[in-house]
Each structure stands twice: as C-alpha cells, then as structure tokens.
Design a protein around this nucleic acid. Sequence first.
RNA 1: CGGGGCGUGGCUCAGUUUGGUAGAGCACUUGGUUUGGGACCAAGGGGUCGGAGGUUCAAAUCCUCUCGCCCCGACCA
Length: 567
Amino acid sequence: MRFSKLFAPTLKEDPAEAEIISHKLLVRAGMLRKVASGIYSYLPLGFKVLNKVINIVREEMDKAGAEELLMSALQPAEIWQKSGRWAEYGPEMMRLKDRGNRDFCLGPTHEELITTIVMNEMLSYRQLPVTLYQIQVKFRDEIRPRFGLMRGREFIMKDAYSFDLNEKTLQESYKKMHGAYSRILERCGLEYRAVEAESGLIGGDVSQEFMVLADNGEEAIVYCDKCSYAANREAAKTAKTEGESDDFKLLEEVNTPERKTISEVSEFLRISPKNIVKTLIYQTEYGIKIVLVRGDREVNQEKLNRVIETDKVTLLSNEEFGRYSDLIPGYSGPVGLNNYEIIGDNEILSMRNFVVGANKKNTHFVNVNIERDFKVDKWGDFVFINEGDKCPSCGGILKITRGIEIGHIFQLGDKYSKALNATFLDENGERRFYTIGCYGIGVSRLVQATIEQNHDDKGIIWPIPLAPFKVIVIVLNTKDEEQNTIGENIYNGLLNKDVEVIIDDREESAGKKFADADLIGVPYQIIIGKRTKAGSKVELKTRKDNQKTEIPIEDAVEKVCLLLRAD
RNA sequence: CGGGGCGUGGCUCAGUUUGGUAGAGCACUUGGUUUGGGACCAAGGGGUCGGAGGUUCAAAUCCUCUCGCCCCGACCA
C-alpha cells in the first residue's frame, strides 16, 4: 500500500466528541468516524485492524471446536415473545415494523434465534454437544452511548452458543470457551483477568467476565493479592465475618442533635462507622423494606434486587417519607419498627453494641444488639466490596482495579430451552431440554481496548498481530530520486516476502511523516533520509520502545522479516 | 428519564454578556522555496452561524419552540 493512495485522514487535533485516549486516537489516526451517537464507520485502517481481531477470534473458536454460522440481524418478535424477553428487554431493543405492521427487532443478541434454529432440527443426543458461533453486528439502543466503540448502539460481537446434554458436559463446553477466550486475549497482546460476574438480564447461574485491565475501564474489578479470587465489584462477595464476643451492654438512647449522616454521627459519638448500622428505607413492589448495612458500606442495588426478588427497588424519597409517621429520615433504625420487613446484610450478624437511629428526631440508640433489641426477617449479601476488605475465599486482602469488559461467558442451563421448549432426544427416545451456554466477545470493543492499553503520547502502539501494517517505509524527501529508489526497493522486497508494508511516498514534510507513522502505530519504521546513500545504511525504528538501529540497505528486508518472525 | 454543557467553513475554536450584516488556526487549491520530528512565503476557494417561528430599521447575538451532540447517574459485549 502507498500512503499517497491510502484513505486515512489523520488529525492533528483531538476530536471534541472523544473523551478517552483510545477513542481520540482511533479518530485521529483516521480509522474511525462517527455517523450518529454510538454509531460508527470504520475507515480502511480501522477495518484492517477489525479484521485482524476477527481472524484471531475465528481461529481460536474453530480450534476450540466451535462452528461458525451467520444468523440474521433482523429478528421477528415472535421468538422474543416466546422467551418473554420482548417485554423484558425494554427500550434498549431497537424495534421496527415491516410494511405488514409485523413487529421485528434488530438483534441485541441471538439466544432466541439460535435456540430456535437448533430445536427445529430435533437433534439426537448422539449429535451433542454442539457449539455454534457467529461474528455479527448487534444493536442495543443504549441509554448513553459512550467512549466511541466501547459502548456503541451498533457494535460487532462474536457470540457463541453451546448445546449440551446436561450440566456436566456444559461445564466442559464452557471450559473450552474459557480457554479460547484466554488465548484470544493473549494473542491480542492484552493484560486481562477472568472474573466472577453477575449474569444480569441474560440469566443463568455461573458466569465470568474477561476484563482487559485499563484505568479508564467502566468496571471495577476486585482481586485478591494472595489467591486467584477475582470478581467484578458488582458480584464480589463479602468475606464471612467472625462473631465478636463482646458482652451485650445496656441499650441507651442518646441525643444526637442535627446529626443525620453516618459521618456526622460517627464524629459526634466518636465511634467508627463500622460500629454504626445504616438503615435504608426502600420502596418496592412488595411495600416498604428496611435494609440494614454496616455504616461504612454502600448498597449494591443489583445484589439487593436478587435478595428481594424484584428489580423495582428505589430509595424512599423525601416526600414519600412524609406518608409514614414512624419513619424519620436521618434517624431511622430497626428497633421498634415492627410493621415492615427488615433485611440485614450478613456483615452485621457479627456486630455487637452498635449504633442505630431511634426513629425519633435528633436521637440514636447505642449498644444495640440483634435478637435482643430487634429481629431481622431476612439475611443476605448486598454491599459493595471496598479495597482492603478480606478475600472471601482465602482471607487475603482485596485490591480494586479497573477493567474493560471484553468477554462474558455464561452457563445458562435450561432457561431458554424451557422457555422455547427446545428439546433433543435422549438414548431412550425421550425429549429433554438442552443445557445451554452462551459466550460473547465485544469484537469492536476489543479493538479500542487494545489501544487503551497500548499507546503513548504520540499515538497508538499496535501489538504486532493487530497492526494494520507491520512495516512502514518512510521516504523523507520524495523529490530525492536516490531516496525514492532505495525506498521502493525495500518496499518491493518486503512485498515479495508477503510482509504487510506501506510506503510513505507523500510529498509531505519529514515531521508530518514521522508523526503519522507514530500516530497510526505501525510497529516497524524504515527511515530513508538524506543520510541514506546508495550502499550505506537505513534507520530501523521500533515503535514500541523507540529503539533506532542502522542497518545496511541490502539487509533491511531480511532483518525486518527476522524480527517479525520472532514476534 | 433526571442533572450540567455545547451546536459558528471539513476539523479545533473565538465572536453571543452590551444586536450593526462573520473571524482565527488547522485542512484544502495554485505557484514558489523547503524536506531527520506535525515547514515557510504568496495567492485562492469554501459558512442557510443546527432548524422553525418571533421581537427589531437591523439577529450568530434577544425571546419561544424544536432537533442533534457531549458530560455526570441507573443498563451492558
């Protein structure tokens, strides 16, 4: 490829639309352009990289025994109505009608469709397990598209689905996908973690996320410094707390004028927030719920939803407080509140002689104890983990870092096969539900995550396997015939060796050529300038570490091929 | 949907407070000089000031409505 012919409009200035570095660089390097909010077009360079990722994904999926197919992006409403998700998915689903007024959607995912395809063939147990995948455009009308390809409304995803005889063989299929995902991320040169996750809307029991570590990541990940425990902060469990053995002290009412928040009460009474129990009043479809967590904790709504078994939980607003004379904002507590269900976080089980609101203005109780002073109707784990907490699996200390969710793998079980009545015939000729797993990789997101992890102040630093070109031959002065000849010779030499190479033959200033080569992140640069004469040396620069070496012109092709083979 | 902000040549932005008929840098075109880190000189093209309506002698600027985009919160690959 010749740079003079390449459609790669590079930008000197950061685009106003972009917030994070990877998004800025994708646009500046002439790889990506916005079409509408959360919708993008890939320019030739960006498309090249996208295809590199796609090929890696494809190779590893095939190696793991999965078979590629391509389903339609447009899906009829019926299959979604059967699974119940037509209603459940909400406004995030891009819906449309055909001319006959029939409902369709642009697929946000393909569980329903793949299950329908497989069930229609009435497989025998002898044909199982089978894992099918596709690389497809997905549509989700995100509430807030963000960060370019990180959260688009149209994005490219590799989604795979395994159909198994039972839980046991599902675990094997799952393990294979886990392995394939690990290899994909390794080949892309990424630092990542596989973490325990929440299953969310898709459902199922076991699920893990593959997180690419990045400071700008949207997810917080918790990991143990001693053992292999790692989890999404949304899903991270609290460690079991040991019961403290203090004797119960006498319950006392204390005056706490205008001290409403945990920090105010903590300061005023000179006690740690860990010895206060925070009382939160939630409005749910089943009425008011009193939720208790340790004073230093934040409630994890997702987890709480699971405990209450609803997704319609909101904190009671100030106006709503007025309707309940026994609920006093800032001074609420479980003692004496017998009209509502009280739900306690597991952590407070071990607390002794703690502080709670007294349901009376400007008053708190001290030396409160569970059972003696109030009863908890239901226990659960629904707080966020903090850095420094104990590891739930080994007792080590937990750390928090940020990550970009690139892959998510689920053991779904029979949720969809039951909903859609998808069965196979077992050895006795009886119908049984498939045990299903599903596995996603955000392919377009992966492209951007790679940049987030591989860049410097000059631009992108592509890992070799993803680089749109492996080598750029830079002829600094194209009006110098000698430079041109040397450059063209090396360029043709590399082409003959099937190296993906581009020659910068533009009539631009030297500085612009250097800047563009660095910006688009080509791993190796061969620089031909006025120092380069026939029979002399060219400069070879590696983008990653800015190493510059002089090599004889006639060795250049061979040397680069050697380097590429080593990588 | 709630809160905040922005829409002015292809891009990044100034001009809006205090109405007077649109500007800079980058990019682009032509010519010339340059070519080891985003060159210089000269000439040039390009803007319904997001859209609609209103106020006014006069609107990018004031008012009303509307559309789009960005940021902060709940959803997720």
